[in-house]
């Protein structure tokens, strides 16, 4: 019985196309294996530069919705990051300090 409930719960957690939430990045990222790093591997060098930046292309190109603009600063959900590097390349001011998470942390694809 308890096992059945477990299976049912697990099934619910798997986003299936018929469901609404499955088009969200957030929901999709739940499927990935992930080891959280204690510190962010993405660092904004100078927030003033971001305030001056009109387009904020980092927010646009990120496939994992890592960046959000709130109260005059970038909120970085680095534990969503899939480590592609797009944000660093599109930043017109080279204002994003990018490295990969250390010691094998971060995302791990099961399929790839």
């Amino acid at each position: 019985m308890s096992q059945q409930i477990y299976i049912q719960k697990q099934k619910e957690e798997i986003p299936v196309y018929k469901k609404e939430e499955n088009s969200n990045v957030e929901g999709k990222l739940f499927l990935a294996r992930y080891k959280r790093d204690d510190v962010s591997h993405l660092v904004i060098k100078d927030n003033e530069t971001c305030i001056k930046c009109n387009h904020k292309p980092c927010i646009i190109v990120c496939p994992a919705d890592v960046y959000k603009w709130e109260e005059n600063r970038l909120i970085i959900s680095y534990d969503n990051c899939v480590e592609c590097g797009s944000c660093r390349i599109v930043c017109p001011y080279s204002n994003i300090q990018f490295r990969y998470p250390l010691h094998g942390k971060g995302i791990g694809y099961r399929y790839g």
């Binding site: 986003p15 499927l31 592609c84 797009s86």
Partner: peptide, 8 residues
């Protein structure tokens, strides 16, 4: 859906 992924 089994995996969502992105890469350059």
């Amino acid at each position: 859906l089994k995996e969502y992924s992105a890469h350059l």
